[in-house]
């Protein structure tokens, strides 16, 4: 089945996010070859032009490298994975804090609540 896409973001950037996440989780290794535009389009059930844009965007970010006549490869630059992991962390934290504030919690309370959760684990709330 083709993957579902959120409406809030262009499809090309959602596929880029997915590739970055796979890289950070170690499902894609540095220097690994990505599927061709066509293959990736078939896997994701989208127009190949969309994948072309995804790869272009990832190249701009320095996450992938396109080698002429060979295809697209994950970067081998050492620092990239760490940098991407930090970026994702920042994004997730920002979204979490925004949510907590929107239900009226003070920063101090957010702090306490996170600490308690980490100590007791999820089971502590049951």
């Amino acid at each position: 089945m083709s993957a579902e896409f959120k409406t809030s973001k262009p499809i090309y950037s959602q596929i880029a996010d997915r590739i970055i996440q796979q890289f950070v989780r170690g499902e894609l290794s540095p220097g690994e070859k990505l599927p061709s535009v066509r293959e990736m389009a078939i896997q994701s059930g989208v127009n190949p032009n969309t994948i072309q844009r995804t790869y272009g965007e990832l190249e701009r970010l320095g996450v992938v490298e396109t080698k002429r006549g060979q295809g697209t490869f994950m970067t081998e630059e050492n620092d990239m994975k760490r940098k991407l992991r930090l970026d994702i962390q920042q994004e997730m934290i920002a979204a979490f804090i925004e949510n907590m504030r929107s239900i009226g919690l003070e920063d101090r309370e957010i702090h306490e609540s996170v600490n308690r959760f980490l100590k007791e684990g999820e089971s502590g709330h049951d």
Partner: peptide, 8 residues
Amino acid sequence: DTIVKGLV
């Protein structure tokens, strides 16, 4: 879904 994949 098969048809969409076929098109792609």
